[in-house]
Design a protein around this nucleic acid. Structure first.
Length: 213
DNA sequence: ACCCAGGGTCATA
DNA sequence: TATGACCATGGG
């Protein structure tokens, strides 16, 4: 909680997840942002929106080659076209948003993990930001931050780290959502060293950190 | 010319 | 269970 307060003080509320059209758009973004800069995801989502295709029935029916054209800016477009199609088919077959909302968090998580292309992080993005469930998202930035802060090694299994956060924090989806967003904001921030670079956000410690300044 | 990005799947040992 | 190859565009 001390770490959370420091990040909040440094970067301010992040207001994640950025989406204009509700939960389904969050889910689409969660699949498309896999190992991909968010700015590129926005382009693809805007292209889909402009074409009136940001909707499960349309996406599920769209030929993969055509969907891949929309997804070009996100990279891995052939892979992600298949994943997005698989997700939309699951979404429709499951009965849509209202039906999914009725599932408890554990059951919903299991269903999401069963979809091709949805791994633990993507599933938890969806649970947290689309369904408002108190599930803590672990990503590469979280691992790096924990390692730099000396709070963990960073290479622990996904579930172990998720459990650790959820044990240490009250089950508050608003808190988890801000926390994860703040960790990402910190990772993207420039390293402004004051007085030392203990928690240097850069992927590789910056020059000041290496020289021990 | 690198390196990285709000990961996951699949084959191999 | 634990690596490694693979996917591919756009910005620094």
């Amino acid at each position: 909680m001390a770490l959370y307060r420091r990040l909040l003080a440094a970067y301010g509320p992040q207001g994640w997840w950025p989406a204009r059209d509700g939960p389904f758009e969050v889910m689409v973004g969660a699949v498309l942002t896999q190992n991909t800069a968010w700015a590129n995801v926005e382009r693809a989502i805007e292209a889909l929106r402009a074409a009136g295709a940001l909707e499960p029935r349309t996406l599920a029916r769209m030929p993969p080659a055509r969907l891949a054209r929309f997804l070009r800016p996100v990279g891995y477009f052939n892979v992600k076209a298949r994943r997005l199609r698989a997700f939309c088919r699951f979404y429709l077959e499951a009965g849509g948003l209202e039906a999914l909302r009725r599932l408890d968090t554990a059951a919903l998580r299991a269903r999401l993990l069963g979809v091709h292309g949805v791994g633990p992080e993507t599933a938890d993005d969806i649970l947290l930001y689309a369904f408002g469930r108190p599930v803590f998202v672990i990503d590469a930035y979280t691992r790096r931050l924990l390692a730099r802060q000396g709070l963990a090694r960073g290479d622990e299994p996904y579930e172990a780290l998720r459990a650790a956060f959820e044990r240490a924090l009250p089950p508050d989806a608003g808190l988890y959502g801000e926390y994860h967003a703040l960790i990402v904001a910190h990772a993207k921030a420039r390293c402004r060293v004051r007085p030392a670079c203990e928690g240097c956000p850069a992927r590789r410690p910056c020059a000041r950190a290496r020289s021990g300044a």
